[in-house]
């Protein structure tokens, strides 16, 4: 009874993965952008990051004035990049949780001939796309209103682009790790992504250099690609005029370190997700609705 399919299974797998990623992205964007009317969505997209950056500016003026414009630049780039972490990483986890608990579609998505990983990556990329506006607004505000020393002449575009791509990959890897836990836990699944996000905010140098952390947290921080990503983005956008989280490393070393950690985390995330998915099938909890 089994019918013969393609001669090249890997080509089928790639095609299926790409198709699934596109549809996942489309769905993610529809959900992200259709919850309200376009005008309100636009205002929200601008107002939210502006609010975030203004809070940081207050913090800067009240607490960290001693750091000068180098510290201000640190703040602004961190604030511009962090929405990618929040939306991308948490978005991956929430995609699965909302499909399971709110939309109740996870079982139908799961039993269709797709790659669930590609689907979740697509959903995460849609969420990350929605962070682009926030990042742009923050950077523009930082450059033109706060006077952060960021000039076209000093921006290392290829370096920044490479760092950005690796950063997004590592954000999604973190998302897959969080989703691996979310698929196995039930009632606390909603809280977990936010908790992980808060912990990363603390240890990855989002708003202050990791050099101020205790040594054990510094070691932990160095093992997380987000620390390297934020560092590389600051170096790419601001050049030498910025406080550094990894002061003993050259720009190239930071990028290579980010690349290696990203590969490591992506590989680990894929393996962990595969195990978690299988475990959830064993336990019979893959589509179990719990609390929504």
């Amino acid at each position: 009874m089994p019918t013969q399919r393609a001669s090249y299974p890997w080509a089928n797998t790639l095609q299926r993965g790409w198709r699934t990623l596109r549809v996942g992205y489309w769905l993610g964007w529809q959900i992200e952008s259709n919850w309200t009317d376009p005008l309100l969505f636009f205002i929200y997209s601008i107002a939210r990051p502006l609010g975030g950056v203004l809070i940081l500016v207050f913090m800067y003026h009240v607490v960290a004035r001693a750091g000068g414009t180098a510290m201000l630049g640190f703040f602004v780039v961190g604030a511009a990049c962090w929405p990618f972490v929040v939306r991308g990483m948490m978005g991956t986890a929430y995609s699965l949780i909302t499909d399971r608990e709110h939309w109740k579609t996870l079982r139908y998505v799961y039993i269709s001939p797709i790659s669930l990983r590609a689907y979740l990556v697509g959903r995460a990329l849609a969420q990350a796309t929605s962070a682009v506006a926030a990042a742009a607004v923050t950077l523009i505000f930082g450059r033109w209103v706060l006077g952060v020393p960021m000039h076209l002449a000093t921006i290392n575009a290829p370096y920044t682009a490479a760092a950005f791509a690796l950063g997004i990959a590592s954000v999604i890897a973190l998302g897959l790790l969080v989703v691996s836990a979310a698929v196995l836990i039930s009632s606390e699944a909603w809280r977990m992504p936010e908790g992980v996000g808060a912990a990363l905010y603390l240890v990855c140098g989002a708003i202050f250099p990791v050099t101020v952390l205790p040594p054990i947290l510094q070691a932990l921080s160095a093992a997380i690609p987000l620390t390297w990503w934020l560092e590389a983005m600051r170096r790419g956008l601001l050049g030498p005029a910025v406080v550094r989280s990894l002061p003993h490393l050259a720009d190239g070393q930071v990028l290579v370190g980010l690349g290696l950690l990203t590969v490591l985390w992506v590989t680990a995330a894929l393996a962990v997700f595969t195990l978690a998915e299988r475990r959830a099938r064993q336990l019979g909890i893959l589509d179990r609705e719990t609390m929504y």
Binding site: L27, W103, K104, I111, P113
Partner: peptide
Amino acid sequence: RERISMVSGGEHSGYGL
């Protein structure tokens, strides 16, 4: 999965948006 489909009753699945 390439050969099956499923419909369950008594639920309200669907992306409401």
